[in-house]
């Protein structure tokens, strides 16, 4: 068992490909810390990523890892988890990856409730392709494909996950390092589909196009917009405007799909044996 975060990483793959000031390295660090604190067996742990900046996470973990097609990581993981139930599988997804191109897979994964943990690196923009508008870009914000300001209404990933049936949903920011580690740990420990949305900063594109080019300033701006769930309930509608609730937002006990399927297999095989015996 490894118990130091660096023991879970392919140190020889560093430095990573992310831009200076990017929040993705902080989320990746938090994931490595969560793995170490849980003392996960690297041989029985896998990281699966999609396409985009977040997808590069899969290359950094020193364990079985997969870099899938765009938006499909959660379904690759579905097939893998069903045939290897003992594996702990963590998904590293971007906002465009998870709920843009992979939106259909994401909501169905929430509904199916397999024991997977999805970390969503939400930087509200398509970074790897050069700063295009995402389904999470706030209204009026600029991107290379919304040069006059975004006219669309964004998805709230955590609320979408809750509505679709995910059984553990938490949201935090790349500013709140301790919370990232805590929620990722709880997500991994939770038996069911866990979603940890991390609001993070992309100074290179989002920042440059929206007058927030300093990484710290941008990180701080994200933090300033958030309100912990413990305080959220006391706020009026007006006070909530423009704010984002963070914390553990949802926890539910519901049958986990892999267990349900293996129960079905056991039941069918018992029936088969009985019918053979009785014949």
């Amino acid at each position: 068992m490894a118990s130091e975060p660096r023991e879970y990483l392919r140190i020889e793959r560093l430095p990573h490909v992310w831009c200076p000031g990017c929040g993705h390295g902080m989320i990746t660090h938090a994931l490595a810390c969560a793995m170490a604190e849980l003392e996960l067996d690297p041989k029985q742990t896998a990281v699966i990523g999609g396409i985009g900046c977040s997808g590069r996470t899969a290359f950094l973990f020193d364990m079985d890892s997969m870099h899938t097609t765009h938006g499909r990581a959660v379904v690759f993981a579905t097939g893998l988890k069903l045939v290897r139930p003992a594996l702990t599988i963590v998904l590293a997804l971007g906002d465009g990856d998870a709920i843009g191109i992979g939106g259909n897979h994401f909501i169905h994964a929430c509904r199916r409730n397999l024991d997977l943990t999805a970390i969503i690196y939400n930087n509200a923009i398509y970074g790897q392709t050069g700063g295009q508008v995402a389904p999470t870009t706030p209204p009026a914000k600029k991107s290379t494909t919304s040069p006059y300001g975004n006219l669309e209404h964004p998805f709230d990933i955590a609320r979408l996950a809750i509505a679709a049936g995910a059984t553990y949903v938490a949201r935090t920011t790349s500013f709140d390092f301790a919370d990232m580690v805590k929620f990722i740990k709880r997500g991994i420990q939770h038996k069911g589909f866990s979603v940890i949305e991390v609001l993070t900063h992309c100074p290179t594109y989002y920042g440059r196009l929206n007058d927030l080019r300093d990484p710290y300033e941008m990180l701080h701006t994200i933090k300033e917009q958030t309100v912990p769930i413990e305080e959220w309930d006391q706020l009026s509608e007006e006070e909530r405007a423009g704010k984002i609730v963070i914390g553990e937002l949802h926890r539910q006990v519901r049958p986990e799909f892999v267990e349900s399927y293996y129960r079905l297999i056991a039941q069918m095989q018992r029936l088969q044996e009985n019918s053979v015996d009785g014949h």
Binding site: T78, L80, K81, L82, R84, L87, N104, H105, H108, Y261
Partner: peptide, 22 residues
């Protein structure tokens, strides 16, 4: 295991994941 997916993209994705599971 037999799984009905949300579309054919997901079908082959799950198949590839399962194949890497052995």
């Amino acid at each position: 295991i037999c799984l009905q997916m949300e579309d054919e993209i997901a079908s082959l994705s799950a198949v590839i994941g399962a194949s890497w599971g052995g």
